[in-house]
């Protein structure tokens, strides 16, 4: 379903601030697979998802979604295949527009937008029914500006919007990180339910080892812009949160070692 070949991306190339955010990432993700992406801050997880979504073009490599090479497609064109939920609950909805308007906009993701009415009379029941499945009583607030809702409510609606039309690929970037524990839990359960119900191919970034260990069928661990570990099948099934934490500690120790070794060399030779 998703094929990434040798993706490379460098920000501020050739300057003092050069960041090699992706250093040759290759991944092959099967149809219907639910992949959890973990890694330390700055390891390139968001960059990877942004590259797939087309927020910028990669410097090298190829991106193939559902058999189509989209490497040179602009973001809005790829959106026909991709549903997205961002870390910031404010990012996924248009605050001054109503709940119903936001949903109706999402119902046409990737379709032509012409001079038909956004909210024809017949669409209202469908909107309400699907919002009712969230069990958040939001179906009574369809005409409120979505900006008046809480972060958790907005994130739930964003998830609903991203999957309103079945996407070939669902990208979730720490979509529960900004929520209180209870709302985060609710969103996680909702995510599970939607992903399994529609058998969505999903890439989900998280910092929660708990989520990583319990969700999905594959774990990809990133470090310094490359894939460090890829747990799948049996290996994935036996992994526990503690194993992941230990692996992180190892990485941290290695990096510290690298840093102190470099410091020592610098002190000796420079």
């Amino acid at each position: 379903m998703l094929q990434l070949r040798e993706l490379r991306k460098t920000f501020f190339a050739g300057t003092h601030n050069e960041v090699r955010a992706l250093r040759g990432v290759s991944l092959q993700i099967d149809d219907g697979s639910f992949v959890i992406v973990i890694g330390t801050n700055g390891s390139g997880k968001s960059t990877l998802l942004n590259a797939v979504a087309g927020s910028f073009y990669v410097d090298q490599g190829a991106i193939n979604i559902a058999g189509t090479d989209v490497t040179r497609w602009p973001e809005h064109r790829r959106a026909a295949m991709i549903g997205r939920v961002f870390q910031n609950p404010f990012s996924g909805t248009a605050p001054s527009m109503t709940v119903a308007e936001n949903l109706a906009l999402a119902a046409r993701r990737g379709l032509r937008r012409g001079l038909g009415r956004l909210l024809p009379a017949r669409i209202h029941t469908e909107l309400r029914d699907r919002v009712a499945t969230l069990n958040m009583q939001l179906e009574n607030r369809m005409n409120n500006p979505i900006g008046t809702l809480s972060g958790g409510q907005r994130q739930a609606l964003t998830l609903l919007m991203a999957t309103w039309r079945r996407p070939d690929l669902l990208l979730l970037d720490e979509h529960t990180a900004a929520l209180d524990p209870k709302s985060a839990d609710q969103i996680v359960r909702l995510t599970e339910q939607i992903v399994s119900q529609h058998r969505l191919t999903t890439l989900m970034v998280t910092h929660s080892m708990q989520q990583a260990a319990t969700l999905g069928d594959r774990i990809v661990m990133m470090n310094q812009g490359s894939v460090l570990a890829d747990y799948r099948a049996a290996e994935r099934r036996h992994i526990r949160a503690e194993d992941l934490v230990r692996r992180f500690d190892e990485i941290r120790r290695d990096e510290l070692l690298d840093a102190s070794a470099a410091e020592m060399l610098r002190a000796q030779y420079l």
Partner: peptide, 28 residues
């Protein structure tokens, strides 16, 4: 009437939240 069409609403959303409407397939 225009601002309540699919096109006009996408236009309003472009001003309201660029990131969101891009992710929904509209060229801002």
């Amino acid at each position: 009437l225009f601002f309540n069409t699919n096109l006009g609403s996408a236009m309003r959303a472009s001003g309201d939240n660029e990131q969101m409407i891009r992710a929904l397939g509209v060229s801002v």
